[in-house]
């Protein structure tokens, strides 16, 4: 029996990358697997996708999925600028970026916020574990107060909330998930890929080596016991017995994406959260923080906000594909400028 294929005639294996060199059980690997699954299920053309990252454990992971897509492992914290240039030079590309909490929350916070402000078209995933693992266990800016690390002791500074930062900068798509909830990660990834602007996806991704004990909110034990699902999302009909069990017809809300596809949100409590209400989104995050919970789901979305390529009033043809005749004005154009400047007839 042949392997199952998608609409492009490709198998799931065709969407894999090189073998992961991350630690066994790392949450990042699970996320990579969900990216592979989603790209396969959506039938993405890999040559239309660019994979981008910064520096850190998370940023290594684009090598481990979509092996037929061009990739760019940029500098620490500087992936947003690479994404800005690449997606402006070729507006047809689908950018998938993978960053970490150090890469986004510390060294790259400025570029992260300006990327959001410009609404650069990219799925921007933060694999958030609250720790610098490649340098062997320093706190990151998303570490919780009171968290203990063998290397760094006890953290006494408040964490930066990636989703809150994104909301403050007028992000057009903000979601949070947990690497241990592959179903939800896949749902949110699909919604993010369908979103036309910057889609920030903060995924709590436990570090099995340096930060996986009960005092950390970025650990498996904590995540499993404190995760409060905001909505269940079904993108296309998906098998999810638990979700279907609790769905009520009155509890469904559809959000239309720019490509006409729909994300259907299923709220646990329909009076609880409207993902098109920015203030409510902030309040939700703030309340969750006070209760020491992290909520997951689509926190905010605005499909009307213009993207950078739209704001640049560029031709529809990608700049990178423009022929030389278009790029270099003709001889007469230079002669005209020279004539205007030359002094004496």
């Amino acid at each position: 029996m042949g392997a199952r294929t998608n609409e492009l005639g490709l198998t799931r294996n065709d969407y894999k990358g090189r073998p992961s060199t991350l630690c066994a059980g790392c949450g990042h690997n699970s996320i990579s697997n969900q990216i592979i699954a989603v790209a396969y299920e959506m039938g993405l053309n890999q040559h239309d996708v660019i994979k981008l990252s910064g520096i850190g454990c998370s940023s290594k992971s684009p090598a481990y999925f979509l092996g037929r897509s061009h990739g760019f492992n940029a500098l620490h914290g500087r992936m947003p600028s690479i994404a800005t240039g690449a997606t402006t030079a070729n507006r047809d590309l689908i950018a998938v970026g993978v960053s970490g909490d150090g890469d986004t929350g510390s060294i790259g916070l400025g570029q992260f916020k300006h990327m959001i402000r410009r609404n650069v078209p990219i799925v921007y995933i933060v694999e958030n574990n609250g720790v610098y693992a490649l340098t062997k266990g320093q706190f990151s800016a998303t570490a919780d107060i009171g968290q203990k690390l063998k290397y760094a002791g006890i953290n006494e500074m408040p964490p930066i909330d990636i989703c809150m930062e994104a909301l403050i900068d007028n992000a057009s798509f903000v979601a949070r998930s947990f690497a241990g909830d592959p179903t939800q990660v896949r749902e949110l990834l699909k919604a993010a890929i369908s979103h036309k602007g910057t889609a920030v996806l903060d995924i709590i991704s436990p570090c099995v080596t340096f930060n996986n004990h009960e005092t950390s909110s970025k650990s498996y034990p904590y995540g499993k016991s404190h995760q409060e699902s905001l909505q269940d999302i079904t993108y296309i009909p998906m098998y999810d017995p638990i979700i279907i069990d609790v769905m009520e017809p009155g509890q469904v809300q559809a959000v239309e994406m720019h490509d006409g596809s729909h994300v259907v949100l299923k709220k646990l409590d329909p009076t609880k959260h409207d993902p098109t209400n920015r203030l409510a989104a902030m309040q939700l995050l703030e309340e969750a923080r006070a209760k020491e919970q992290f909520i997951t789901g689509l926190i905010y979305v605005d499909e009307t906000q213009k993207t950078l390529p739209e704001l640049s009033h560029m031709v529809k043809t990608p700049l990178a594909h423009l022929p030389n005749e278009t790029l270099r004005p003709p001889r007469e154009a230079l002669a005209k400028v020279m004539d205007r400047l030359v002094c004496c007839d």
Partner: peptide, 25 residues
């Protein structure tokens, strides 16, 4: 048939240039 982006600093400016150069601009 072009784009001009005022960046948040020179570091981002050159990052954008390199991203665009890689993509073929």
């Amino acid at each position: 048939t072009y784009a001009i982006v005022q960046a948040e600093d020179e570091l981002a400016a050159i990052g954008m240039v390199i991203g665009a150069g890689w993509a073929g601009a």
